[in-house]
């Protein structure tokens, strides 16, 4: 079963995205901040990380860079989510990502992104 780690400090968004993905046969883990996301990665290696950019405690950018700097996890595709538009990621950080979803995104956009990543 394909597994997805959804990381968002907004619980409502994490819950619904997780439920929608579960209904489509994905096994989903939720994390409400970057530190919990890294802890979740230590428990189980997901097939994809859906990662909010703007988070307290540890930003999505910091999580992205940490994941990509870790040999065990760097191959995991990371799709960033943010309500902020263009320019939220530097070109260097963008090169680390597998995709970007601008909030509010639709169900079709979410599924299309997953299809592009091959999940």
């Amino acid at each position: 079963m394909r597994t997805v780690l959804v990381v968002d400090d907004e619980y409502e968004i994490a819950e619904v995205v997780g439920t929608v993905l579960s209904s489509r046969g994905y096994e989903v883990a939720l994390a409400l901040n970057g530190k919990l996301a890294l802890a979740a990665l230590a428990d189980q290696r997901p097939d994809l990380i859906l990662l909010d950019v703007m988070m307290p405690v540890m930003t999505g950018i910091e999580v992205l860079r940490t994941v990509k700097a870790t040999e065990e996890h760097r191959a995991i595709p990371v799709v960033m989510m943010s309500a902020v538009g263009d320019g939220v990621l530097s070109s260097e950080d963008e090169s680390l990502t597998a995709g970007y979803l601008r909030k509010p995104f639709t169900f079709d956009e979410l599924m299309a992104t997953f299809a592009r990543v091959g999940l």
Binding site: E12, I13, V16, V17, V20, A83, P104, T106
Partner: peptide, 8 residues
């Protein structure tokens, strides 16, 4: 933020 979960 408030409306996106519902529409999704």
């Amino acid at each position: 933020s408030a409306l996106m979960p519902i529409s999704l």
